[in-house]
């Protein structure tokens, strides 16, 4: 596309202004996290740290349970995403390739699951996990997250599979592949962008959870996730915004990095999944 110089200037100016406004909160997190705690509540605010306090970060990493909480978050997110991907791939393939009674209802049902207020489910879920003996274990969180991911993931992947011509696996089966073989050796490799997008979505969903984690893991501090841990930094009597912001950035960083690498798949994967 050819653009005149004024048009280019207009475009870049708009971009810079829009990004500055939209990302100001992120910038402010960084600035606050580096400020000394006694300089936070004074005016004029410092927009650039004169004396960056890196020890806020080193303290968090070496003197608190933050690394452990981050590990737990990562473990839960990876396993929950893995399980839900497996389950969703099978379900989506089934919905995409087979005509079944009630197949239509499944679509609406998936939407239904996005309507349940989480606060309404908390107490019944708590009882269920207790009966299963999973209370306080990371498995309770993994299962709850996987369940939250599966409906949307199935729906995204079904859209993606629908866009793959059936001739592809028919050809493979003529060559002697089983239906499983066709799915794993032909369909999945072709669907890589869709899988990546769905996995990223699941990972973000799991990583961002606070309500479930706080409820199921309250009793087991060793298993806390990053979000639950951060909440304890806001004490009854003390609020050190610099520490909270630093911890928050550490918690947001892994997703930002994952997003950095996978974002191009996200757009591509959603094109098929949602747009079609």
């Amino acid at each position: 596309m050819n653009r005149t110089l004024p048009q280019s200037i207009l475009l870049y100016t708009t971009l810079v202004v829009v990004i500055c406004i939209l990302l100001f909160p992120v910038y402010w997190m960084v600035i606050t996290s580096l400020a000394p705690s006694n300089a936070l509540r004074s005016f004029p605010p410092q927009f650039w740290p004169q004396n960056p306090q890196w020890q806020t970060y080193t303290n968090l990493i070496f003197n608190t349970d933050m690394p452990r909480w981050l590990m737990n978050s990562a473990l839960v997110a990876v396993v929950a995403t893995g399980i839900s991907m497996l389950v969703s791939v099978l379900a989506a393939y089934s919905l995409s390739r087979y005509t079944m009674k009630g197949g239509e209802a499944v679509g609406l049902f998936i939407l239904m699951s996005k309507m349940l207020p989480a606060t309404m489910l908390i107490i019944p879920l708590f009882g269920i996990f207790r009966n299963l003996g999973l209370m306080g274990s990371l498995w309770s969180l993994i299962i709850a997250h996987a369940t939250a991911i599966v409906p949307f993931a199935t729906w995204m992947l079904k859209g993606y599979f629908d866009s793959i011509p059936q001739e592809l696996e028919q050809a493979a089966q003529v060559d002697g592949c089983t239906p499983w073989g066709a799915l794993f050796r032909v369909i999945l490799p072709v669907s890589a962008p869709g899988l990546a997008a769905t996995a990223l979505y699941g990972f973000v969903l799991s990583w961002a959870d606070y309500l479930y984690a706080r409820t199921f893991l309250a009793n087991a501090a060793g298993n806390w996730t990053a979000n639950v841990g951060i909440a304890t930094f806001k004490g009854e009597y003390q609020t050190d915004w610099n520490v909270i912001m630093a911890a928050s950035l550490l918690a947001a960083l892994p997703i930002m990095i994952a997003y950095l690498f996978l974002q191009r798949y996200l757009v591509g994967g959603l094109t098929a999944g949602a747009g079609k």
Binding site: I122, I123, F126, G127, R130, M135, R214, T215, A218, N219, A220, A221, A231, T232, K234, G235, E236
Partner: peptide
């Protein structure tokens, strides 16, 4: 012993008791 933030404390205890596994 486990630390729970004051603002979440009553909710947390309530859930633990209602779910049948009180501290």
């Amino acid at each position: 012993a486990t630390q729970i933030a004051r603002q979440d404390f009553a909710d947390t205890m309530m859930t633990q008791f209602a779910g049948g596994s009180p501290p």
